[in-house]
Nucleic acid binder design. Structure first.
Lengths: 226, 226
DNA sequence: CGTGGCTTTGAAACATTTCAATCATCGTGG
DNA sequence: CCACGATGATTGAAATGTTTCAAAGCCACG
């Protein structure tokens, strides 16, 4: 983990324009103003499971993954966070999941307390509320995906989600097949097969295993069946 | 739906003592004070999917279920709510799921606005926050159950959860096998088989299909594998 | 006592996983 | 620059778990 500098360099996230789909609240730049800017190398841990959760994080560039392990070693992926996304806001004292850098990434970090001093309690409250609500919504959607969707539908939903977030024609998969599998509640082999299958029917096209483009949006949405 | 009376009869929930495991906040009796007390017959709808969500609900007696349907008719159960539980608090404008009375039940209902006038904004905010946090926690746990648990583990977890909430030796299942199945992401047949199987190995004992008792708590917890 | 709804059980079909092998990609060192 | 090994992805075949379809059992209710 590399600390670049703190409490200055207040430029907002450069790598990617703000997500168009999501309503960006006024608190969006709170962190940019007083946060500490840090970079993490691929696979580096940002925080660990069980650690104290009094910091708030925002992805500037790169992708972050939260995950936890069950007693018997099964991994669960909480979610993937993209530039502009806030993460690490817990409802309790400690982090229930660990966060890792999926790619090299830049993250703004701030203490809740420092934020309160800097921008006032209300705005911090509002930010925490927003982050929590978003967490709940993600969780619900994830749930829906897992309860009654087939392997194919899950993979289709996932790719559709990625495609919606990406701005360009070709979409990059920041995560490995294993990450996808753990997120979707499948095995890597099944994920791989479904990807191949979706490509076979002409819905998507993979240039490499980490890059694809949607060839038939309508069909993809049908297959996502949400 | 039967309206008994409103804005008086401020006795708190009589049927069951407050959940011991959960920290009961000071806002616990807010609703009892100014809420409207209503009864719903089994299978009656309390609110519908898409309806405006400016009311807050608390179960006094009976059990409530939230559910929604996907486009192709698959039902998803959100959760089951027991006496003392708050439900119907949404993060957006409308209810994402419908709520139905699983059994005959009594529910306290209040307008958010009325609550604010009666007890002040902070306490209402606190209650909404608590309800949202609990929702998120339930959702996460539910997720964990679905991602990487076998049918047997899911059913074991579910029975374990019920047993923990119940105070007596024998536990009543308020919900049908279909409800369990939709909650656990399984079919009724599979649920039934797993129940039989758990009984076969002596972990639980079913007196009827709606009543059971735990015979081997340790084994049940092992099988729940959470 | 019979009917209807829910639950259980059985057998076959199906989807996904597991195990195993092959294939690609990429960085390293000769 | 190419061969090499390492890592991750794909593919195949068999095994497994869950679902589907079908039938029987149970219980409550009229």
């Amino acid at each position: 983990m590399t600390l670049i500098h703190a409490f200055d360099d207040v430029r907002p996230a450069p790598t990617r324009p703000a997500q168009p789909a999501r309503p960006v609240a006024a608190n969006d730049d709170i962190l940019a103003g007083i946060g500490v800017r840090m970079t993490f190398a691929k696979d580096e841990e940002i925080y660990g499971q069980g650690e104290d959760a009094d910091l708030v994080y925002r992805v500037v560039s790169g992708v972050v993954r939260t995950s936890s392990f069950t007693a018997d070693g099964r991994r669960q992926i909480g979610d993937f966070y993209y530039p502009g996304d806030t993460f690490g806001v817990e409802t309790g004292e400690a982090h229930l999941m660990a966060a890792e850098a999926l790619t090299d990434c830049v993250v703004m970090i701030a203490k809740r307390k420092a934020l309160r001093l800097a921008v006032g309690d209300e705005r911090v409250q509002a930010m925490i509320w927003d982050a929590t609500v978003r967490e709940l919504e993600r969780s619900r959607e994830h749930l829906l995906l897992l309860v009654r969707k087939t392997a194919c539908e899950r993979v289709a939903s996932f790719l559709k989600g990625l495609a919606e977030r990406a701005e360009g024609e070709t979409v990059e998969l920041a995560m490995s097949r294993q990450d996808m599998a753990d997120y979707l509640g499948l095995t890597i082999e099944t994920v791989s097969r479904m990807v191949t299958q979706l490509q076979g029917v002409g819905v998507v096209e993979f240039k490499s295993c980490r890059h694809f483009r949607v060839r038939d949006r309508a069909a993809l949405e049908t297959m996502a069946a949400s």
